[in-house]
Design a binder for these strands. Structure first.
Length: 204
DNA sequence: AGCACGATTAACT
DNA sequence: GTTAATCGTGCTC
């Protein structure tokens, strides 16, 4: 069964709301008819040029161009000379903001994912932003693709309704050199462990 | 042109 | 707990 992807209106809101509401939705990678998918279990919000953890702190550049564009696009970047990261562009066109997808729970194409993550235990397949991209064949070729298009190589479908009580909030990971208040601002969202039984959870 | 560093991961000790 | 991997990006000279 295939549902329609989340529409532009879903993404055209403040990035913190989008990050929270992406929990429980289904991230789908469409590769020549093969579907690989998982439920999103952890996200982070990056919000505008004033957010010194956000890449847009450097302003509008070749790299950040997609973040300034239409909501509902994928912002995919390369880091540490090794890893790719997947983000969803949010907010009105012209306002640079995006949600980093930090973890998913695989639900489709698990045999293929297992092949790509050979020798790694299931709980470690996609419990990190770069692990998601490795597992779902996501790289810079897909930067800027339309997440709201049913035929897009990457899209996001509605999933589980997550009760407020199942959502944990904390500061963002991996920005130790970012000055306060941005280093500690609570813009990380994750499913609590007590929600395991419903869709699973692989957060720390 | 050169440099420091990064929204991380896996493989070490 | 520590660190190599490995290169694009943005900043300084």
């Amino acid at each position: 069964m295939v549902s329609s992807p989340l529409a532009v209106d879903f993404y055209n809101r403040p990035v913190q709301f989008v990050a929270r509401d992406l929990l429980g939705t289904r991230l789908v990678r469409n590769d020549a008819g093969m579907r690989l998918a998982g439920y999103i279990t952890e996200t982070e919000a990056y919000d505008g040029e004033s957010d010194l953890a956000c890449h847009a702190r450097a302003g509008r550049t070749h790299r950040t161009e997609v973040m300034y564009g239409e909501p509902g696009r994928a912002y995919i970047y390369f880091i540490y000379g090794v890893h790719w990261m997947l983000n969803c562009v949010t907010g009105e066109e012209g306002w640079p903001a995006a949600v980093l997808i930090r973890a998913i729970q695989p639900v489709e194409g698990e045999e293929e994912i297992a092949r790509r993550r050979h020798g790694i235990s299931r709980s470690e397949w996609t419990n990190g932003p770069a692990k998601i991209c490795r597992s779902l064949l996501i790289d810079g070729c897909l930067n800027g693709c339309d997440l709201t298009d049913p035929f897009s190589p990457i899209l996001i479908e509605p999933g589980f309704q997550i009760p407020e009580s199942a959502i944990g909030i904390g500061s963002r990971i991996g920005i130790q050199n970012t000055p306060e208040p941005w280093r500690s601002i609570p813009w990380r969202y994750y499913l609590e462990r007590n929600f395991h039984g419903h869709i699973g959870c692989n957060n720390p």
